[in-house]
Write a protein that binds this DNA or RNA. Structure first.
Length: 461
RNA sequence: GUGGUUUUAGCUCAGUUGGUUAGAGCGCCUGAUUGUGGUUCAGGAGGUCGUGGGUUCGAGCCCCAUAUUCCACCCCA
């Protein structure tokens, strides 16, 4: 086994030139919309202190954090610990802080919260930031799920206005439309409504179990949800009360009316309804058309523990794929880092899933693989010498140009231009050098014409 | 973390009950065309059959382990 076949770690990928063009198209589109709504870009390190990340994503989440092994003699450190404290027992739990104190970023929201706390004195609130960087999860890969993937987050901290939530809907709407998606659903819900429902049933402590179960309605159906609710500690009486809420039908206004009646006894539930109404009201004033793909979905829960108000999730209906975006309001995210009373709200686009969707729907624009405008052929040393100042002039005028780097066969040089999708090839042989009229070939039509340097620059600019 | 699945040429895939020298299409290289790509024609190179063990006279094919791919569950973008 001297020579291993090279490979990349499970769930990671290389991105070749064509893929990068397409990925940047996605990033640039999303970025331009973020900027349009007043969000500024930041970046944070790929790794964070492990203590920054642990405990923020729940037990399931913590397991998926990629931990970085300490450098140096960690085994010696472990033994030193044991000598110092007799009570120190070797176990996965006790050894972890000795073996690892850094970890790869799991999402962009928690590092952002850390950033806000560390930079609170330089930041003027409300602070609107966006961030596009990879995150890592030690998950088992499958369709649309990678161990390294990019998130595109926009978050605002220090503003409790529901205008932010309304604008998030518009950002989703605009960015996804720009990318060519037509049939997608922006689902919206409110944690307070879910809390209200749990209160009415009289099981507020089981709210997480309730939401996890009803979130699966699309997947496992009503019977499955009811079965899971029973397993999670609800009685059949509770389920009787829940059923009409889960099966809520109609358009957004109708759903709101029905919910209002159900949630009348709970102040928190009513507050949730009011928030949704306010967001819809903002949206009605902020957009020219009604937004047909915004849908109030009471079964939308999302896993993350820290959402307290609005919850978003975006799904495409054109391809079978998990959610391509999500987000929500979290009242006290920075509290875990010691800065209390700062509210935040944010959304995320899953760039890799969006890529897979656009790829499957063949929605990537065609022209994008053309980069170099003109290739100058290389006949021999004399021609190369003649070509260099010309190459310089082309680039000076902003024309993307290449000189073939060796005097290879013209056939090969033409094939190179063809494979790279270069639209023009300039042929400079002894004839052209003498006359000063150079042969420009249009690769698409196959036509050739003789042009002077000035004419070339004019034509290629 | 649980259950299943995939892996054969650069790519997409054939390969019979275990039997000589493992095939195709596309791509690549060379030539027809020493100054012309994408079309055509002729020729050519390229394979530790994912990896490591085992069974067998003999393994791409059977068994074990491991990696990887994809899928479902959990959870999530």
């Amino acid at each position: 086994m001297a020579s291993n076949k090279p490979s990349v770690p499970k769930g990671t990928r290389d991105f070749s030139p064509v893929e990068m063009v397409r990925r940047n198209y996605i990033f640039d589109t999303i970025k331009s919309v973020f900027r349009k709504y007043g969000y500024q870009e930041i970046q944070t390190p790929s790794m964070e202190n492990l203590s920054t990340l642990t405990g923020k994503y729940g037990d399931e989440g913590d397991k998926l954090i990629f931990k970085i092994l300490n450098s140096g003699d960690f085994w010696g450190e472990a033994e030193k610990q044991q000598q110092k404290a007799e009570a120190f027992q070797f176990s996965s739990r006790s050894l972890l802080p000795v073996l690892s104190e850094k970890a790869l970023r799991y999402d962009l929201t928690v590092p952002f919260a850390r950033y806000v706390v560390m930079h609170q004195n330089e930041i003027s609130f409300p602070f609107k930031r966006f961030q596009i960087q990879p995150v890592w999860r030690a998950d088992r890969p499958q369709k649309g799920r990678y161990r390294e993937f990019y998130q595109c987050d926009a978050d605002v901290v220090g503003s409790e206005s529901l205008l932010n939530e309304a604008e998030f809907v518009l950002i989703y709407q605009e960015a996804l439309s720009k990318l060519g998606l037509r049939d997608f659903t922006i689902k919206i819900n409110n944690r307070k409504i879910l809390t209200g429902i749990a209160e009415i049933i009289g099981k507020p402590e089981l709210i997480v179990d309730m939401t996890v179960a009803i979130d699966k309605i699309d997947k496992i159906g009503l019977d499955g949800v009811e079965k899971e609710l029973l397993e999670r500690g609800f009685t059949s009486g509770d389920i009787e009360m829940l059923r009409p809420v889960i099966l809520l039908k109609g358009d957004n206004a109708e759903k709101l009316e029905k919910l209002k009646a159900v949630l009348e006894p709970t102040s928190v539930g009513k507050a949730g309804i009011k928030e949704i109404e306010t967001i819809f009201d903002y949206l009605a004033r902020l957009s020219s058309s009604s937004l047909p793909n915004v849908e109030l979905d009471i079964t939308l829960a999302r896993g993350l523990n820290y959402y307290t108000g609005a919850i978003f999730e975006v799904k495409t209906n054109e391809v079978a794929m998990g959610s391509i975006g999500g987000g929500g309001r979290y009242d006290d995210l920075t509290g875990m880092f010691g800065l209390k009373g700062l509210t935040g709200a944010g959304i995320s686009f899953g760039a890799d899933r969006i890529y897979d969707v656009l790829d499957e729907l063949k929605l990537f624009p065609e022209q994008s693989s053309e980069i170099t405008k003109v290739l100058i052929t290389n006949f021999d040393q004399d021609a190369e010498k003649y070509a260099l100042p010309l190459l310089f002039s082309f680039r000076n005028k902003g024309i993307a140009a290449e000189l073939y780097p060796s005097a290879a066969k013209i056939k090969k040089q033409m094939a190179y231009a063809d494979s790279k999708n270069i639209p023009f090839v300039l042929l400079i042989g002894s004839e052209e050098i003498q006359s000063g009229e150079l042969t420009l070939k249009d690769m698409k039509s196959g036509q050739q014409e003789k042009l002077t340097k000035e004419e070339l620059i004019k034509k290629l600019s």
